[in-house]
Design a protein around this nucleic acid. Structure first.
Lengths: 107, 107
DNA sequence: ATATTAAGTTCGGAGTAGCGATATTTTTTA
DNA sequence: TAAAAAATATCGCTACTCCGAACTTAATAT
């Protein structure tokens, strides 16, 4: 049995060389529960738990939660666009966001 | 009674002109529960609920959860937008980028 | 003013998150 | 090989999430 959340937690935990016990201790959780998150489904943890685990593992909560498949290749064009976008004033950014909502093809 | 999470949700909800019912519907939750998150403490929602609410409100889950106020609303909104943008297909992204160029108020 | 509708608030309860205890199996280290 | 450590797995329990439905208050129409 494998879930995106479980796989991410396990991979990150191993990458840091943590045991279940160690991660549980750092994330103020329990060994049994961390194991359940990694191996049992469906996992439905609280935002609080996820935030703590994410902090310990050095990633964002959004990364752990997000179920959509991640694109492996970094798109330089996208990042360049975002850099430009961030410098725009609030009203313009709002316009762009609302327009993107209208064009949005991701459900 | 006021909590950081509750205040953020209420502020963002009002800014979008949503009622409790509307937000509940969009976030696949219930009116009563949204109200509890806004007004009752301690709120300890599931990561799933927070992720859905954050998506509807156009911010990251991290922004809603994180108590350490290092990330502003604007940053969270921008990041959430970029995450959405990245998932769009190339043609749509191109449209948005060209549109942003037209609206661009810098240089 | 008052009926109608919408928004916000409260509450009971089903189901489950999350823990500690415990037992068994696998992996690591001596 | 033995022993220690880590991982796998289950169970019982308490507290809390989350919902539906009923209720109260605010807004708006008639």
């Amino acid at each position: 049995m494998s879930t995106p959340l479980g796989d991410k937690i396990r991979d990150l935990r191993k990458a840091k060389g943590y045991t279940l016990d160690k991660l549980a201790e750092l994330a103020e959780s329990s060994k049994s529960y961390i194991w359940e998150l990694e191996n049992k489904n469906p996992p439905r943890p609280s935002a609080d738990k996820v935030a703590k685990i994410a902090a310990v593992l050095g990633v964002t909560a959004d990364y752990l939660i997000d179920t959509t498949e991640k694109v492996g290749v970094e798109d330089a064009t996208d990042n360049a666009f975002f850099r430009k976008y961030r410098k725009m004033d609030a009203a313009t950014k709002d316009k762009i966001r609302r327009m993107a909502d209208l064009l949005g093809d991701d459900e």
